[in-house]
Nucleic acid binder design. Sequence first.
DNA 1: TAGAATGCGGACCGTCGGTCCGTTACGACT
DNA 2: AGTCGTAACGGACCGACGGTCCGCATTCTA
Lengths: 190, 190
Amino acid sequence: MREPRSRADAVRNREAVLDAAEALFVREGLAQVSMNSVAAAAGVGKGTVFRAFTDRAGLLQALAGRRTAPLQEAAAEGPAPLGPGTPPRERIPALLDAVARAKLDNLSLYVALEETGSSSPYRVPSYGWWHGTLRGELEKLTDPAHAGFLAHALLAAVRADLMTHLAVEEGIPAEEIRERLAAYVESALP
Amino acid sequence: MREPRSRADAVRNREAVLDAAEALFVREGLAQVSMNSVAAAAGVGKGTVFRAFTDRAGLLQALAGRRTAPLQEAAAEGPAPLGPGTPPRERIPALLDAVARAKLDNLSLYVALEETGSSSPYRVPSYGWWHGTLRGELEKLTDPAHAGFLAHALLAAVRADLMTHLAVEEGIPAEEIRERLAAYVESALP
DNA sequence: TAGAATGCGGACCGTCGGTCCGTTACGACT
DNA sequence: AGTCGTAACGGACCGACGGTCCGCATTCTA
């Protein structure tokens, strides 16, 4: 049952596609970026892109993983205040602030990501992880029957399209958005 | 400057298209419904659909208006507890519950609606109205600087895709979702 | 009832996500 | 180094989509 090692060119191309795709997303925004244009920008055939990532959603997932892995890792096994072991009253606001911050720094990328899972952010795998983590902490503070919904509601307040609306349409500085969020989380916590 | 009255067949067709489109959305879900299939189901040419509604977003907007008008009207000028004049502590939960209820009763339609505005629910015109109304009430209860964000956050908790996730994926009965939401709103209110 | 204007409808267009398969080049083995 | 099986490449190709266009039919006005 050996893992069949990938060929060198496959690995190289995979990386090139990810780099090109990320650059395109940041520069042009989700809607403008077709699979064709990604392939062209990476200097690679279309078939190669699909071979490596299965479909558009797969490419976005991969892009997501790469970009969000550090944050998720910090939350899963890092030091306080993000990591486990931190008291819930401190960890929950820290987690939400970290998520908001990451999204505010990469608006278009995260908007694209949340539209991946058959156009429902709730089907993106990482959502389940964040929700589970948050619910776990909330269960220490309140009736476990309420923790699930509460976790959903708090995560809804940091959705990428809301962050985009606040930052772009309403023109609120990122700093201020995070402050408002923090105040909100504080008041919503049981 | 007379308003150029529409021809009888145009009015008739417009109605037929709306009926057919609504039926299709409810039965098949957003993704399955192409402009072609709407035209076919309405027994009408594709050009007619586009002439009447400009583009796909326009069709969804029109569908939206028709379906949500009664609720919005009740909230804008109806009797308590939805209408204006109701004390904020009573009106805000009532508004959010009414919205949640409407969405839970028409999941697929509302999911489709919220994806209309260039894939951002915040660009759908009616969102602005709800947000403004809610903010107005919240300003009576708390620091006006916080009211805007708070209104966004509360509305985020009743987004159609979240309602769908809770009701379909997690299989929670509508009754229970509304109870959890009510408890959440209560605790988040200043 | 005639003529103008309005609306109809479906062939047509460019583009998209995704597939297919003949060709290329990698790398394990001798 | 040379051979060869095979994984990976790449772009022509496909069906479906949203949207346009324009010759033709229907409705309204006088």
